[in-house]
Design a protein around this nucleic acid. Structure first.
Lengths: 253, 253
DNA sequence: ATTCCTTATTACTCCGACATATCGCTAGCA
DNA sequence: TGCTAGCGATATGTCGGAGTAATAAGGAAT
C-alpha cells in the first residue's frame, strides 16, 4: 500500500538543488507528480493557469528536465494538465480531471478536502454500494459468504480502533463488491472506499466511535446470505448513511 | 478517428527515420501508450507478463528511450503496469487497472470489447444514471431545464443517425448529470457514456434504429422538470435498459 | 536449513543537443 | 479599416548516451 499521505515533501523550497529526500522505493518523478498533484488539487494552481516552462520549473525543483517531464506525463494521464508546444503546460478545467483516479483522490485528501467534494463522494457511495449489495445477494456463492463471515469475525475480534479491524472492514466490503461479478463496480468502489478511508482517520481522531458497527454489518451479511436483494440494499444503505453521519460530525459538519 | 494501431514499425535498414506516421497534434509517447494500452487491454500481454527491457523495447519500436519511458509512465499512472529496477516492467493484475479511466475505456473498445465487460459497464450505468436523474429532479434549476429542452429539440431535428443528433443526445444526458451538482457523478457518467458511445457505432452499423427514442427522453425530461424524483429515476432506468437491449442485439446477443 | 552478502541486471536520473509545432506579430491585400 | 497570409521566436517534443541506484537472484558462511 503506497502511503502518499503526509510527508511534508519539501522539494522546491530552496533553489540550489535540495535533492528531494524521498523514501526508498519511491521514484523521483512520482514524488514530483505527487507534489504537483497536491498543489493542483488544493487550488494552488487554478484551472487555466500556466506552469512555468520545463527548464525553469525543473531547475527550481532541482531535478532534471526528464524527471519533471515524466511527472507531467502522469498528471496529463490523469487529466489534470495539458501541454502544447509554445503554449506551455496549463491546468485543465475541473471537469476534465479524473476525480475517481485513486491517486487523484489521494492527492485531494492530502490537503484539507473540500466539504462539498466529500459530500459528493458519499452521495456516489450511497448510490453504488447499496446497488452492489443487491447484486451480491443475487450472485454470491458459498466462497463469497465464507470470506464475508471471516471478515466479520475478524472485525469482532479486533475493533475498528485497530488497523487489523479496519482491514477486516475493508475486506468485508471488498468481498461484497467482488460477489457482484462486476469488475467496474469493484474498481469504482475500491477507489471511493480508499478515499473514504482517509476521512476515517479524521473521524477516529475526532472521537472514539460511540456506536457498535458490527450489528449493522451482520444485517448486510445475512441479507446477502439469504439472497434478499432488497433487504441487502436497504441494510447497506443504512451502513453508508451512518458512515456519512459520523464523517459529517468529525469534519465539523 | 485516427488509428495508429498497426503499422509494423520497421527499422529495416539504416535509417530514414521510420517515424511512426501519426496524426498531427498527437505526441509520440501518446501513440506508444495507445499502442501498448490496446495491447494490454486486448490480452496480448497478460497480467504478470514482463515487457522486454527499456532499451530492447524502445529500439524495436524505433523510438528513443525517453519517449518509451514517458509512455510507460502513462500506463503506470493508469494502473496497467508497474516497473521496478532489476525486475522489469510487468503487467499488473486486472483489479489494479483503472477501468473507469477514459483512455483505458477507449483502449478497451479499440479492439473487440469483451462482452462481459460491456455488460458490467451497462450494469453500472443502470445503477448510476437513474439515481442521477432522481437527484437532478430535486436540484435542477431553470437553466438546467432549458439546456435539456434545447438538446431534446436538437435530437428531434437531426436524428440519432447523424452526428449532430448523437451530440445532442450526449448533451441531454450531460445536462442531467450536471444538474445533480455532483462532480464525481458527472465525471463517472461521462466516462461511461463515452465508452457506450463506442458501442453505439456497432449498434448503428448493425441496423437502423427500429424505435423512436424521443418519447422516452421526453418522459425523463418531464419528470425532472416536475421535480418527481421517483418517476425520473424510473424513466431513466427505462432508457438505459433499452440501450442495453439494443447493444445486446447489435453485439450478437 | 537459514541467514547474510555479493553481484549482475535493470530501471532511474541526468545532460546537452536538435527537431517540431504553435503562437503572436507584421506585412500585404481587399 | 479589417482581414488574411507569411514569418520568426519560443517552448515543448524527441533523441542518444553516460552514470547512478535499487533490487532480485545466486552463492557463501553460519
Amino acid at each position: 500500500m503506497d502511503d502518499t499521505g503526509s510527508e511534508p515533501s519539501e522539494i522546491a523550497t530552496a533553489a540550489p538543488a535540495p535533492r528531494a529526500a524521498r523514501g526508498t522505493g519511491r521514484r523521483l518523478h512520482g514524488a514530483i507528480a505527487h507534489k504537483l498533484g497536491v498543489a493542483i488539487l488544493s487550488g494552488e494552481y487554478a484551472p487555466g493557469d500556466i506552469l512555468s516552462g520545463e527548464v525553469a520549473f525543473s531547475e527550481s525543483l532541482g531535478v532534471s528536465r526528464s524527471a519533471y517531464r515524466e511527472a507531467v506525463q502522469v498528471l496529463t494521464a490523469k487529466g489534470l494538465v495539458e501541454s502544447r508546444p509554445k503554449a506551455g503546460t496549463r491546468v485543465l478545467p475541473r471537469d476534465r480531471w479524473n476525480l475517481l483516479d485513486p491517486d487523484v483522490l489521494a492527492w485531494a485528501f492530502t490537503g484539507e478536502p473540500d466539504i462539498g467534494f466529500v459530500r459528493g463522494l458519499f452521495e456516489l457511495r450511497a448510490i453504488v454500494e447499496p446497488a452492489a449489495a443487491a447484486l451480491a445477494a443475487e450472485r454470491r456463492d458459498r466462497a463469497d459468504l465464507k470470506i464475508m463471515k471471516d471478515a466479520l469475525a475478524a472485525m469482532r475480534r479486533h475493533t475498528l480502533a485497530t488497523e487489523a479491524g479496519r482491514a477486516a472492514d475493508r475486506e468485508f466490503h471488498d468481498a461484497v463488491l467482488r460477489a457482484t461479478r462486476n469488475d467496474t463496480l469493484v474498481v469504482l468502489s475500491a477507489s471511493i472506499a480508499a478515499a473514504v478511508g482517509w476521512t476515517t482517520q479524521f473521524k477516529q481522531r475526532a472521537r472514539a466511535l460511540p456506536r457498535n458497527p458490527i450489528p449493522d454489518h451482520v444485517r448486510v451479511y445475512e441479507a446477502i446470505a439469504a439472497g434478499d436483494a432488497a433487504e441487502a440494499s436497504a441494510a447497506m444503505r443504512h451502513l453508508v448513511d451512518l458512515a456519512l453521519e459520523d464523517t459529517k460530525v468529525a469534519m465539523g459538519r
